[in-house]
Amino acid sequence: MRNFILRRLFLGIFITFFGAMVVYSVIRALPTSYVETIARQRATNPLSTKTYQEWLDQLNQVYGLDKGIIPGFVGWLGNAVRGDFGDSWHYGVPVIQKFNDVVWISFIMNIITLLVEVLIAIPLGIMAATKQYSRADYAITVFALMGISLPTFFLATILKYVFSIKLGWFDLYGLTGRFFSTMTPIQQFFDKAYHLVLPVFTLMMLSIGGLMRYTRTNMLEVLNSDYIRTARAKGLSENVVINKHAFRNTLIPLVSYLSYLLPSMFGGALITETLYQIPGIGFISYQAITRGDIPFAMFYTTFLIILTQVSLLVADIMYAVVDPRVRVN
């Protein structure tokens, strides 16, 4: 087991390295209008003794943009492993600081979504499996497929149209209301929670279908297995069969499925946050990326790659926790 984890860890580092390199080489193709803007600003400063071109060259050197892709990447990596991801061009503060400011709102949003999702999807998935081909099964399947088929932006736009514009229940955008600064801390908390209702609902609708179907498929597989027939043959009540014998075995794949959701916990929901302009890591990154903020984009993508690797590792470990057979091998 330890060897396995070590191997997995090594592999993760290897993949992170090359993944970051691939991303870096693509990002270098981004327009560096930021550097040009800064260079122009400094060149037009009356105190400046350098021309625009000299400033541009100097800035390019500082950011390693004058070097080739590989030396540039090595330079970036050298700083990154020491925890220095540079200053965000778009936000003007250290990348790490900006990340720290915004990641928690994404995390909270996703945790709430996950809890609600699990509470709804797993029971419904089990129900669909136990009553296969019943009307309830069809309804759940169609609902799940609808959720999968809905594009995020369309669902969000419809929700905004109905609940924000037609009914006027929620604000169209943002995390805080108009009078946020004059509120007491408790009111501020509820204001934020209120603004998170639609985003969380959107996220939930989009991911609930997948989990529901996954639960249903795995539950069906378990229900078709021999030990369930044995349990029934023993004369156990249907409740015990489902909840004790079947459901516990369904947990194995479910746990790994939930581990794969880890990247989205911290990685934020780029599209949903952008649509509702929730200042979480997704929205902030979207703005940084579309404006050519190379340090932030590099940090965000690398962060996501690392998260994916960690989630794979966690999934494997979780497998071992819930399935004793894995531990033995």
């Binding site: 993949i15 992170t16 993944g19 691939v22 991303v23 693509v26 990002i27 193709a29 981004l30 327009p31 990247p263 990685g267 780029l270 599209i271 990154s285 979207y286 990326i289 579309t290 050519g292 984009a297 965000y300 993508t301 996501l304 790659i305 994916t308 690797q309």
Partner: peptide, 15 residues
Amino acid sequence: NSIPFYPMVLIFGSV
């Protein structure tokens, strides 16, 4: 598989 999809596609779109 580890390369994040949307950030990458957004970068391509910007490019």
